[in-house]
Amino acid sequence: MTDLTMTTKPLSVVAKLCYAFGGVGGEILWVVFGAYTSIFLVDVAQMPPLFATSIIFGSRVVDILCNVVIGPLIDRTNTRWGKIKPWIAISTLFMTVTNALMWYVPDVGTGGKLAWYIILYTVMVLGRSGFSIAYTAFLMFLSDNSSERDSAILYRSIIIMGGMLGGVAMHGQILASFRRSDHDSCDNMTYSGNSSTNSSVDGVSLEMTRTGYMISSAAVCGILLLCLSAIVFGTTERKDISATSGGKRDQNMFKTTKIVLTFRPNVYFLLAYFFIQIPIAIGHGGIALYVQYSLDLEDQIENVLLSFMVASVLAMPVIGWVVSKLGRKTSYICLMLPP
């Protein structure tokens, strides 16, 4: 029998670059979504803080449920375009459409806006979950050579980190150019505990801020479509790997899910991941509100968030060195203790 690894061409640099660039748009969307959603809903969409929190928490619950269901669905997908690419394409289109709509503020009252954002944020999280799982799994269908996959991961890490920095900087600078305080003497908005909405002057300054969000949304949508084009036209999904993946096909999806959820080590990992992600998600979503309302640095929100991103990128080599010295498990425990 002929060895497939000897008859197939190695991954080209172009394919690795296209695969790496394909994940940039989704990461930019997720970082911007996590960092600016709270302040957008409270400050721009004029939603009560309790409603804004409910929308964000509900979308994260959907994300957790999707991670259990989407994997088996992808495994059972078999189309003429491949197993993974259809999921990447459909998920990216979902993210693009919802990203274009979720930064728009409809004039439908508080109840209407609550329904609007719940639906959009849920669909966006569905698309993000589908893309994230499919994009991660796509690496296994690019090559069956572990060294080539490791090389593709290195390309992906470098390009995505650079793309995230550029995306956050782009979003922040667009918003800064439409900042409320540059157009209105009422710099800060206050919330009254006896009111169902935030009290502010909904004039030219608020419309300028909303325009800034819409322009940034259009830019992110363009990046998402460019990233999708890179994956679709710049990479090849190996059919020989796809045909032999997935194991037994006659096993019911619900039975597979039950096995996964009852496997004790996996259950421990999911619980640990869940309780670690809760404070991370809260901090990620509330940091912009904290900077604006507690630190009174409305004019510096984008710079503060960008500095956090820069610090995270600079910390990656240090974390890699710690992992190489202490091992994954010990490093994971040690790195989780400071927060």
Rank of each mutant, 00 (worst) to 15 (best):
Q277Y: 00
V267Q: 09
K258E: 05
K248T: 06
M253D: 01
L270T: 04
L271F: 07
I278L: 12
N252R: 15
R249T: 01
I278H: 05
Q277T: 02
F274E: 07
F254E: 02
T256S: 08
L261K: 05
Y273S: 12
K255D: 09
K258A: 05
R249Y: 04
K248Y: 02
V267Y: 00
I280H: 10
I278G: 08
V267K: 06
F269S: 13
K255F: 11
Q251K: 07
T262N: 11
T262P: 04
L261G: 02
L270S: 13
F275P: 00
Y268M: 11
V267I: 09
F263Y: 15
F274A: 06
R249V: 01
I259E: 15
M253C: 11
F254L: 14
P265F: 08
R264N: 03
Y268R: 09
K258N: 05
L270Q: 15
I259V: 10
P279L: 11
V260C: 03
P279F: 04
I278C: 09
F254S: 11
Q277F: 00
F274T: 11
N252C: 03
I280K: 14
A272M: 14
L261N: 06
R264M: 12
A272H: 08
V267W: 04
K258Q: 05
I278A: 05
A272G: 15
R249A: 05
T257R: 02
D250V: 00
K258V: 03
F274C: 01
M253G: 06
T257L: 15
I280D: 15
Q251M: 12
K255T: 14
P265D: 01
R264T: 11
F254N: 03
P279H: 09
L271D: 11
A272V: 12
N266K: 08
F275H: 00
I259K: 05
L271W: 12
L271M: 03
V260Y: 05
F254Q: 13
F269W: 10
K258I: 02
N266F: 14
R249I: 04
I280Y: 15
L271H: 13
T257P: 07
Q251H: 13
L261Y: 08
I259A: 10
K258F: 06
K255E: 11
N266Y: 10
Y268P: 02
R264K: 06
R264Y: 02
R264C: 01
I280R: 09
I259M: 03
I259C: 02
A272Q: 03
L270F: 07
I259W: 08
Y273P: 00
N252S: 14
K258P: 01
R264S: 01
A272N: 13
F254P: 01
Y273N: 11
V260W: 08
T257A: 14
P265N: 01
M253L: 07
F269I: 12
K258T: 04
V267H: 00
F275S: 00
F274P: 00
M253E: 06
V260E: 05
Y268G: 04
N252G: 08
F263T: 02
Q277N: 10
N266M: 12
P279I: 00
A272R: 08
L270K: 07
T262R: 12
T262G: 09
Q277E: 08
Q277I: 05
V260S: 05
K248M: 04
T262C: 10
P265W: 00
K258R: 10
K258C: 03
I278T: 07
N266Q: 12
Q251R: 08
L261I: 08
T256D: 10
I280C: 14
M253K: 04
L270A: 15
